[in-house]
Structure formats: structure tokens, C-alpha cells
Design a protein around this nucleic acid. Structure first.
Lengths: 223, 223
DNA sequence: TAGATTGTTAATCGATTAACAATC
DNA sequence: TAGATTGTTAATCGATTAACAATC
């Protein structure tokens, strides 16, 4: 356990999901500002660039515990680091990727993910042509090895990029292997025990929103 | 009171974004039911499988104008088709993909997208090694050809999968070429005219939610 | 000090959930 | 008919936005 330094035992408010999704946007913007040598930035200044409400930015940032200076704003570097710590982006959270198809490969080659907390240390598949090869620097192993390896390496984050037809059964195998959090990039609604964290990123959901808004705007509906 | 039959001239309610994102989940589930030969399905039956609230399902489905039968439910095939029509998934909406890197290639090879309304008819890049080759059946062209081709083929949907550093400028070029709706798979917040539809699908946003929930649950927070 | 910005509390807005009447 | 389910309206919940006091 360790020494518990935080006095306010609970109630550091759990950030809402919309807030969590905006935090990486701030990080990217702050990196940009850092590269330009900016020292401080205010919420209204960020608001005008990012087209968010400035009050919302202040509130979003407050969940990290950062302190700003009235009339000045926030220290750019400190703010970026504080958000990164809050989200766990400063750690290299080791993850397994299951399903080394095109989308899986895209994630394997997406090394920027490491700056955002995720390090994929192995991929798994059932395709004999891929097994025991490497993609980039990442080994692709037979899925049967998932359980033993997850236990040995204490990996408990999994990325699911299989075909839809095997998404549910694969997810169950991941859970059985000790995976506690699954980033689900299939459009399938997984049925898993409640204590497993599942984050869905469905392409179809986003296509649905895009097309509907597009068609509505074409028909001249209010927005 | 007198007979006030619904005069709903307008107000076919614009579905909320959460509703739009759930509709593809229903489609996938209905396809599954169809493959099993089911004729009818009720909202409570879907609710128990999908772990949604049954009232919410009824409300979601109502935006499409479908009519269900009390005590019976909805005709499975009719319901699926009605949702598909509502979202525009029955049309092959032609789209251009800009940025033929790994993620772009993943989408190019993801032919299931066609069943969900998106048909990518050409990809664009600046890499000479890729230009004038094909990926799958899709030609990869120099980005300079985007404008002329978008006009000639009347394509107004674009998929943005470029590196972050050129996301904004590329998006502006797409808009100049007549693209009206952009599916933005970069984590960059684009600044574009208000009449342009932008749908963000940021991997980082989802990683942020996943990691934070995961770490919170590890620390035994309330959930 | 004056004024811009933070930080917090209150009001508003919108989505979810509950209640209930209609209906097959 | 009886009862389950649809469809709609009302209540609740949570996130956004506004108001305002604190502060540098």
C-alpha cells in the first residue's frame, strides 16, 4: 500500500467521461504551445483556439488538481505534465493487442500511443502466417500464449481488434487471462463481468453520426 | 378537450448523438437475430442482451419512425432496414480518404464499412511510392488531384487519416475541394467553417478514458 | 488599485429513466 | 379478457453554461 499523503481522502471528483475525452486535446495544444516557447496560457486563450467554453476548460483542468494564477493562467509545461500524470500518460502502461489484422497493425505502428500511456508489448493472432513473426518491433504470438504471458508479465490491459465474429469469445479469453481493461475496437457490445473496464471505440458509431448529420444538413434541417 | 391529433408538421425529432451511436449496435444485433431466423424482437428482449435500458431502446427506435406491435415487438428485418435507411447506410455514400498510412490502409481494407454506408472510392497521399498504386481495389492518387476529382465525382465526404502535423492544412484543402463532411481520425481539433460537418474519432480520447477508469478501479475507487 | 482570470456555486440544458396510458 | 409491450409524457440525473466572489 504505502504512505497516503493525500489528506482529502475521497472526493477528488471523478472526472466525467466528456472531460476525460477533452484532456488529451489540451495536451496536444499545450505541446504546440511549448514548441513555440510559451510559458503561460489562460483558459480564455485556449478557449478561442480550441473553440471550447472557457469556463468548461477551467473546470476540466481543475480535476487534475492544477493551480492557475488569476490574470496569468497556467504554466504550460506544468499543466501538460499534470494532465499527463492525471491520465496515467506518463507511465508506459503495457498492453497486449489481440487480432493482428489491418487495424491492429495500424495501432502497432502508431508509436505516438506511447506518449499517451500505452505501450503494446506483444500481439496475438491465430493466423499461422503471422505467428512468431514481428510487426515493427512487436512480436506476434499464438493466442494460446496469451494467458501464460499476461500472468508472467503482469499485463492487464488488452486491445481488441479481432473480426466481429470472434470478438466476444476472444474478450472472454482475455478476461480469463487476467486482463482487467479492454479497449474494444470492434463494434460488438461485449458481455463481460462488471469489474472489467471496457472502452468502446466503434467506427460504425462514428460513421452513423457523420452520415446523419451530413444528410440532415443537406436537407437544410436546422443544423 | 377536443380532438387534437398530432399535427407534427416538423419536429421529427433530430436524434441525439448518443442515440445515433447506439443505432449501429442495434443493426448488428438485428443481423444476428436475422441469421437465427427470428421474426420479431421486443425492446425488453434486446435490452437484456445489449444491457441497455428497454425504455431507451424504445425511444431510440422511435426516431426512425418504425412502428412496433404491443406485446409482440418489432419485425426484425423491417426494423433493421428502417434503421439503415434512417442512417443512410443503405446508400453507398462515396467518400475520399486522405492520408494512406497504416490507419488509412486499415480503413481501405475494412470493406464492412460499405454495409454501413461508406464507400471509399479513392485515397490521396503525398508519398510518391504510394501514388498511382492501388490499395485493394482503391487507387491512391496525388493529393493535388483531390479538388478536380471531388468536383467531377461529386464526392463530399472525406476521411482524414493524415499525420497530426498536416491535419489542419489538409482539412482546409478538403473543404476547398468541396468536401462537406469530414470524419477526422486525427486527434487534432480542426478549425473549419461552421457549415462543415466534422466527426472526431480520436484514439487518444478513448485511451484517456480507458486508462483513467482502469487506474481508478485499481485504486479501489467507487467505480 | 484596477482588471483579467481563476475557482466555485447556481442555473440551465439535455439525456436518461420512470410512470403510465394506449393497444394488440 | 388479461397482460406484456409500445409510445409518450413527466421526473430525475448529470453535464454544460452562467454568475460571481476570490485573488494575483
Amino acid at each position: 500500500m504505502g504512505i497516503r499523503k493525500n489528506i482529502k481522502t475521497k472526493t477528488i471528483d471523478q472526472a466525467s467521461e466528456p472531460t476525460l475525452k477533452r484532456l488529451p486535446v489540451y495536451i496536444l495544444h499545450l505541446q504546440e504551445l511549448e514548441s513555440k516557447g510559451a510559458q503561460y496560457v489562460s483558459a480564455p486563450a485556449m478557449a478561442s483556439v480550441l473553440e471550447f467554453d472557457s469556463t468548461q476548460i477551467v473546470k476540466d483542468l481543475s480535476v487534475t488538481g492544477i493551480k492557475g494564477k488569476p490574470k496569468v493562467g497556467y504554466n504550460v509545461t506544468e499543466l501538460r505534465q499534470t494532465i499527463e500524470e492525471y491520465l496515467g500518460f506518463n507511465k508506459k502502461n503495457e498492453a497486449f493487442l489481440v487480432g493482428a489484422g489491418k487495424l491492429g497493425q495500424a495501432l502497432l505502428s502508431y508509436h505516438e500511443l506511447q506518449g499517451f500511456g500505452i505501450k503494446i508489448i506483444a500481439a496475438f493472432d491465430v493466423d499461422e502466417d503471422k505467428i512468431d513473426t514481428q510487426y515493427g518491433n512487436t512480436p506476434i504470438l499464438h493466442i494460446e500464449k496469451l494467458g501464460a504471458l499476461a500472468e508472467r508479465l503482469e499485463v492487464n490491459i488488452g486491445i481488441l481488434t479481432t473480426p466481429n465474429s470472434v470478438a466476444q469469445s476472444t474478450a472472454e479469453a482475455m478476461v480469463k487471462s487476467g486482463i482487467k481493461a479492454i479497449w474494444n475496437l470492434t463494434p460488438i457490445k461485449l458481455k463481460l463481468p462488471n469489474n472489467i473496464i471496457v472502452q468502446d471505440t466503434s467506427m460504425y458509431a462514428n460513421v452513423a453520426v457523420l452520415l446523419k448529420k451530413h444528410h440532415s444538413s443537406e436537407k437544410g434541417e436546422s443544423n
